[in-house]
Amino acid sequence: MSEQSPQPEQKPWMIYGANGYTGELIAREAARRGYKPILAGRSPGKIQALADELGLGTMAFSLDNVEQATRQIKGMSLVLNCAGPFSATAEPMMNACIAARANYLDITGEIAVFELSQSLSDKARSAGIVLCPGVGFDVIPTDCVAASLKAALPDATHLALGFDSRSGFSPGTAKTSVEGLAQGGKVRRDGKIVTVPLAYEVRRIDFGDGEKEAMTIPWGDVSTAYHSTGIPNIKVFIPGSPRMIKSAQKANYLRPLLGIKFVQKLIKARIAKTVKGPDEATREKMPTFVWGEATNSRGEKKTARIRTANGYSLTITGSLAVIEHLMENQHTGGAYTPSTLVGAELVARLPESGELVIQ
């Protein structure tokens, strides 16, 4: 992790969902840097031990009642929401933050959450607070690549993004992925988000570690890259083996079954018992390769690549970089993406990132 000296804090801030895999990693690094976030979540017992170990304060509340949550958040300068699935937590927390006049950040990759933040932009502007979901691996690297490609090819009409990551899933990410399978694939076409089959398009891509077969996925940039760049046609890819791609395409036939709440509940209960996030040694061995390609109506093309830290490690340093930015800078209220809030150079400044190269 970086050896940054902590900046002075004007107001307290909160990590909600600090007992989760990623929330705990961020809390530990924040404490190592000398910060004193309030650790919060639904269950006091699950966060108290961590808070005692790190010498931090705690708060326990659910998001079932926005008014009650607002009272708990009152006085905070910002809330970093790490409690997934964000399909359940983002809306009440965003509304509570708007009411409490606290900046809202989270580490989601869910398209619906990004679109929600944009729909609440006017309310956030009136309250004078920032809404910026996606301040982790979802979606800092790809969002910065998108913004950089827009600068390199201002009249781009089509944008393809992707990443090659060998990270394992945390329980929260795995649960979110199950929800995503039920909703099908997503791309942006002529400015509109449309539903398409899973693994809708397959092509060969060199993400930075050799050419590989890759398939489209419903990643958050289908929302955020549009709001960052205005490019109307967007797809996101990850590499996959022929077997993995074929399995994703077969899953299209199971989507009605996966959408049943009872089935979702069973799968998520299984995930909670069996899925553990990667440990530090594993994360350090697994860099991520991020790629983007912008094309204009004349067929001109620009390609961008950058190597970054493992997704979970980048989420730790990326979220704290955005928090530090908000501590040091004032922004007009409203909905932002990481690149519109901090700048397209954010990803290249993070530990273990290489140079962002555009050709």
Rank of each mutant, 00 (worst) to 15 (best):
Q249N: 03
Q249E: 01
Q249L: 03
K250F: 01
K250C: 00
A251Q: 07
A251E: 01
A251T: 06
A251W: 01
A251I: 02
N252C: 05
N252D: 12
N252Y: 03
N252S: 03
N252M: 02
Y253A: 12
Y253G: 11
L254F: 07
R255V: 00
R255D: 08
R255P: 00
P256D: 01
P256N: 05
L257Y: 09
L257V: 15
G259W: 01
G259Y: 01
G259M: 06
I260V: 15
K261L: 09
K261I: 06
K261D: 14
K261S: 14
F262C: 03
F262G: 04
V263Y: 02
V263W: 07
Q264L: 04
Q264S: 08
Q264T: 13
Q264A: 02
K265V: 07
K265Q: 14
K265W: 13
L266D: 00
L266H: 05
L266Y: 01
L266N: 01
I267H: 06
I267E: 05
I267R: 09
K268R: 14
A269S: 15
A269N: 15
I271G: 03
I271R: 06
I271F: 02
K273A: 14
K273T: 12
K273M: 13
K273V: 12
T274H: 12
T274R: 15
T274K: 15
V275P: 10
V275A: 11
V275Y: 13
V275C: 12
K276M: 05
K276C: 05
K276L: 05
K276S: 11
G277Y: 04
G277N: 07
P278H: 04
P278D: 04
P278S: 03
P278Q: 03
P278I: 05
D279Q: 08
D279Y: 07
E280T: 04
A281M: 12
A281Y: 07
A281R: 14
A281F: 08
A281I: 02
A281H: 13
T282C: 07
T282W: 09
T282P: 02
R283G: 02
R283E: 08
R283T: 04
R283W: 02
E284G: 08
E284L: 15
K285G: 10
K285H: 10
K285Y: 05
M286C: 07
